[in-house]
Amino acid sequence: MTTGTIALNNYLQAQGKLTLLSWVDTSSGPAHAPEWTSICKLDGQAVATGTGTHKNLARDAAATEALRILTATTA
Results as ranks from 00 to 15, higher is better:
Thr19Phe: 15
Glu65Asn: 12
Ser22Met: 05
Glu65Asp: 15
Leu21Tyr: 05
Cys40Gly: 05
Thr49Cys: 07
Leu67Cys: 04
Glu35Pro: 03
Thr37Ala: 04
Gly52Gln: 09
Ser22Asn: 13
Thr49Leu: 07
Arg59Ala: 07
Leu57Met: 09
Val47Asp: 01
Thr53Gly: 14
Lys41Cys: 14
Thr53Asn: 14
Ile39Gln: 14
Thr64Met: 12
Asp43Ser: 11
Thr26Glu: 15
Ser28Ala: 10
Glu65Val: 15
Ala62Arg: 13
Asp25Glu: 05
Thr26Leu: 09
Leu42Ala: 05
Lys41Gly: 04
Ser38His: 07
Thr37His: 09
Leu67Tyr: 05
Ala31Glu: 13
His54Pro: 04
Ala31Gln: 14
Lys17Pro: 03
Val47Leu: 14
Thr37Cys: 12
Thr51Pro: 03
Thr51Trp: 04
Ala31Trp: 14
Ala62Phe: 11
Asn56Arg: 06
Leu20Tyr: 11
Leu20Thr: 09
Ala61Met: 11
Asp25Cys: 03
Thr26Asp: 15
Asp43Gln: 04
Thr19Pro: 05
Gly50Val: 04
Ala31Thr: 10
Thr64Ser: 15
Gly50Thr: 05
Thr37Ser: 14
Arg59Ser: 06
Trp36Ala: 01
Leu67Thr: 00
Leu57Ser: 08
Ile39Ala: 12
Val24Cys: 06
Leu42Gly: 00
Thr51Gln: 14
Thr51Ile: 03
Gln45Lys: 11
Ala46Lys: 13
Asp43Trp: 00
Thr19Asn: 15
Asp43Met: 02
Lys17Met: 13
